[in-house]
């Protein structure tokens, strides 16, 4: 009796198991947000992008978000995809159709591929230098206004953020220092200093980055996250 159960099990295992019909997707599409080759950094989990693939019935987006350093990556099948950044996402302009919908960029995926997403930001943070000394963190940077035409926007404020982890933003921080846009006298030389509060549990480093809030644009543009030893 026992033996027959064993045989049946072996037979079932031997005849019934086959691999799935399809291999899982394996081709990696990756890249980052750039403006003239310079990386654009954003907030964690805030700036979305979408890929569409047509020809398989109903279409829906394959949506994801850019990493804080502006990079993205997806594992796909080979094929032709259309890439968009939805309206109102990101501290930059993405091309639009005359009707106002986000225009798409076609990406043909055939093997692992790097594809940088070229966008036009309203501002760029240049020469950001983040240094720590005496229990405080200082950020020095200059601001370059990229879009100067009719769609130009003002700076609402600039903020220096610090946090205990590498996720540094308005939502994730232990201390911030802000300056309103109208108080910026020299965009080529902006200074912000924030005092590091008592860390519990103690650690001898913090992460810092600078963000610019642009009037009328929800997402901020950020400098790179810098680890600072205290």
């Amino acid at each position: 009796m026992k033996r027959s159960i064993l045989y049946i099990t072996i037979i079932i295992l031997a005849v019934s198991c086959r691999k799935d019909n399809y291999d899982e997707p394996s081709v990696r599409l990756s890249g980052r947000l750039v403006y003239n080759g310079d990386p654009i950094e954003v907030e964690y989990n805030q700036v979305r992008y979408e890929l569409y693939q047509y020809g398989f019935g109903k279409t829906g987006p394959m949506a994801s978000v850019f990493a804080p350093d502006g990079s993205y990556n997806m594992v796909l099948f080979n094929g032709e995809y259309k890439f968009i950044i939805p309206n109102g996402q990101g501290p930059f302009k993405w091309k639009q159709t005359p009707a106002g919908a986000p225009d798409s960029t076609t990406i043909v995926v055939n093997g692992n591929q790097e594809f940088n997403i070229e966008v036009t930001p309203y501002y760029m943070i240049r020469n950001a230098q983040l240094t720590g000394s005496g229990g405080s963190v200082t950020g020095k940077f200059s601001i370059e206004k990229v879009i100067n035409d009719a769609s130009a926007k003002d700076i609402e404020n600039v903020t220096l953020y610090i946090n205990k982890t590498q996720f540094v933003s308005g939502a994730d921080n232990i201390a911030t220092k802000s300056m309103d846009g109208i108080d910026i006298t020299d965009p080529d030389n902006v200074n912000l200093t924030v005092t590091v509060p008592t860390l519990n549990p103690a650690q001898n480093y913090v992460f810092a980055r600078i963000g610019i809030k642009i009037a009328g644009v929800e997402d901020r543009i950020f400098s790179s996250v810098t680890k600072i030893s205290l």
Binding site: R48, P86, N87, G88, Q89, E218
Partner: peptide, 8 residues
């Protein structure tokens, strides 16, 4: 025909 919501 359903258009998507803004800012998403």
């Amino acid at each position: 025909k359903i258009v998507r919501q803004p800012n998403q």
